[in-house]
Every structure is written in structure tokens, then in C-alpha cells.
Design a binder for these strands. Structure first.
Lengths: 186, 186
DNA sequence: CTTGTCTATGCAACGAGTTGCATAGCAGGA
DNA sequence: TCCTGCTATGCAACTCGTTGCATAGACAAG
């Protein structure tokens, strides 16, 4: 389980409220670990109960008050312990791949629109990542260790999206070939 | 949710028992959708109850009897319906990426061994996929639609592992640079 | 003779993740 | 004026996925 640890990393980079964390999980952290706000609030409650994080209530005018969380000493220890222990490499889960193999028993051509939709989503993600890279890591800037590490993770996201786009093009070519060469599978 | 549909696809390709399905989910199907045998048996029970699949008890000597499942008409309809409806593109979940960003608050050099371990796992997966490709899809063989679709999914797995290996090399170079250039972050 | 592995099925408990809903003030547009 | 959207927090119910355990015969290695 890594949501607690992802939250610790995010709060170490910058303390924040549950709502702010949820937005980060739609952005930078979410590039490699997703979470909904309900999940975040629940885990924040448990982490506070366990003394991993501390909360400070912040009054705001014009908008609701918020609870700003920051990492306490036990949280730092928990993160260090987790960093030292091995985790198993994740396996992929692609329902689109299930669909592609399932198309052998249905309509290959019917999957083209769906594949194109996925392609558009990944193209958008890639553009988003590249914009973030240009913004946060301009050419030959001097970076500290934390920024270097953030950059190499972002490069991973970029490589993933580029690979996925190339593969989806391969999938589209295959589906079109099957649909064209074998038009009786309507 | 796609486990039911992954099972339908697998049973359409070849009927089999829960145990046989579990082994397939360690192999070909597992390249893009993983499942444990406990999960498979539970879902098979539900699918049988819903009439999606049919079971046939097969006596065996020298080993325990087994229940061979095959897809019934309602299961085929359910698969067709699912193929026609859109699914959201999955987001990635990489605890290693969480660790890499967390290393900014710990010991970057300490992650090198862990990263190398992940690299070895992915190198092995790539070798396994490539062996499967050579075995099942030799040069310029004439393939039917189902095989073409299986091949394009396998090519996706190969592309994913190659991309991951290249990225992990990038990560290793970055971690070594930080460990060497900044040795006071012990 | 014992230990371990393979085939084959499954339950029970727990933790992780999703979906739906609720509250509540403020801002901006139709 | 009403409706939408943003900030901000959270509960409840449900499904999905993992972990641990249990059974049981066959076979091979030590």
C-alpha cells in the first residue's frame, strides 16, 4: 500500500489540506498514483490518529476554513522505513487490451472509435506533461536533488505516454487492416 | 470492472477450469490483467450463478477432478455489450515512482539496489514476451484475425517493457549522479 | 519416511478503491 | 433569480483485491 506514503511525500514537498492534496493527485503526484478526495480524507484521518501527521486549522474568509497537514517525526520515520523495504513491481492493467483480444469474438472495426478516444486522452496527457517539463525544468537549469528526482519521474510519464501513443497507432492500423481485409465480419 | 470480461475472453479462446485460468492469468492474459486464483474462483461462481458460463465436471485419475467452464449465450451477449461501451483509460500506479520522489527526503543512493531489482524483473518479462512472440508469431506467418489481435496486444507488452527498461536506466543514472555529486546526503 | 511440489477447489477476513450523497458559503453568468 | 462551479470536509455502502488458511491425493527428491 502506497497511498499513505504518497501523501507523506506530497506533504513533505509542501504542507497542505485534504482538498489541496486531492488537486495534487489530479496533477503531479497523480501522474503515477491516483486517489479520490474521499480516499484521501479517510487516510488523512488514520494518519493523524497514528501520529504520522499534524494538523493546523486555518481560518479563511470568503471560503471555508481548512485543515493544513504537515508531516510529524513518526511520519518521516515511517517513510524512511518504507523506502528501505522492497516493493514488488506493479503489473499492468489495461482493459483496452482485454477489449482488443475480445474483439476476435465481436466486431474489430467497432473498436476503432474507442481506440481513437484513448489515443486522444494519452495525447492530451503527453502535451500536459511536456508543458510541465518546459515550465518546471527549463534547459540547463541548475537543479537540486529533489528537482532532479521530480524530473526523472516526469520523464518516465513522458516516455510512457509516447510509447502508448505509438502502440495505439499500431493497434489502429491492425484494426483497420482486419476491418478492411475482412469486411464480412460486420 | 473487467475481470469477468477477461475471463470471458479467455474462456472463448479456450474453455478451462479455474485452476487453468489462474495459470493463464500468470501468463498471456496476465500480461495486461492480473488476478489471483481466489479472485477467479469467486468471480467464476458469480458468473455461473448469473448464467454467463456453463460448467462441466471432468473426472481425472492421478489428480483431482476439475470443473471445466465454457461461455454460454448470455455471457457472449454481456461481452458484446461491454465491448460496445466506452471504458476510461487507466492511470498508472507506480510505487517505485513514489519512492523516487520520496528519496529527496531520504537516501537517493539507497534506492539504487531497489531500482536494479525492478530492472531485472522487467528485463525478464521482456525476454519472456519476446520468446512468446518468436514461438507464436514466426516471420510472415499467415494469421487469422484472432491471432493478429493477440499479436498486437503482445507488441504492446513488449513496447511497455522496453520503455520501462530505458526509463529505469535513466533513473539509475540520475540516482548515481546524485549519490556521487552530493555525498553529504547520507 | 518426510518434505516439498503440483493439481484442484474454496472460505474468511481484511484492506483498498469507487460511487453516491450531504453540507455550506461565495462568485459569476443566463 | 436560478443554476452552475469552486472551495472544503466528510459519511455510508458497496465492490474489488489481497492474505492467510484449509483440504486432499499424486509424485519426486532427499
Amino acid at each position: 500500500m502506497a497511498l499513505e506514503h504518497a501523501i507523506l511525500v506530497s506533504l513533505l514537498e509542501q504542507p497542505g489540506s485534504g482538498y489541496e492534496l486531492a488537486r495534487r493527485f489530479d496533477r503531479s503526484i497523480g501522474y503515477f498514483w491516483t486517489a479520490s478526495h474521499q480516499q484521501i480524507y479517510r487516510v488523512l484521518g488514520r494518519m493523524e490518529r497514528d501520529g504520522w501527521i499534524e494538523v493546523r486549522e486555518v481560518r479563511q474568509d470568503g471560503r471555508p476554513d481548512k485543515k493544513v497537514y504537515s508531516v510529524a517525526a513518526p511520519g518521516r520515520s515511517a517513510l524512511s522505513a518504507w523506502l528501505a523495504e522492497p516493493v514488488e513491481p506493479e503489473s499492468v492493467r489495461h482493459s483496452l487490451a482485454v477489449k482488443i483480444r475480445g474483439a476476435a469474438f465481436g466486431d474489430p472495426a467497432g473498436l476503432i472509435a474507442e481506440t481513437e478516444r484513448h489515443r486522444a486522452v494519452h495525447a492530451e496527457r503527453l502535451a500536459h506533461y511536456l508543458a510541465g517539463e518546459r515550465r518546471d525544468f527549463p534547459d540547463s537549469a541548475l537543479l537540486d536533488a529533489g528537482q532532479e528526482l521530480q524530473h526523472v519521474v516526469l520523464r518516465g510519464g513522458i516516455a510512457y505516454e509516447r510509447m502508448t501513443l505509438a502502440w495505439l497507432d499500431d493497434v489502429l492500423a491492425t484494426l483497420r487492416r482486419l476491418g478492411g481485409a475482412d469486411p464480412d465480419t460486420h
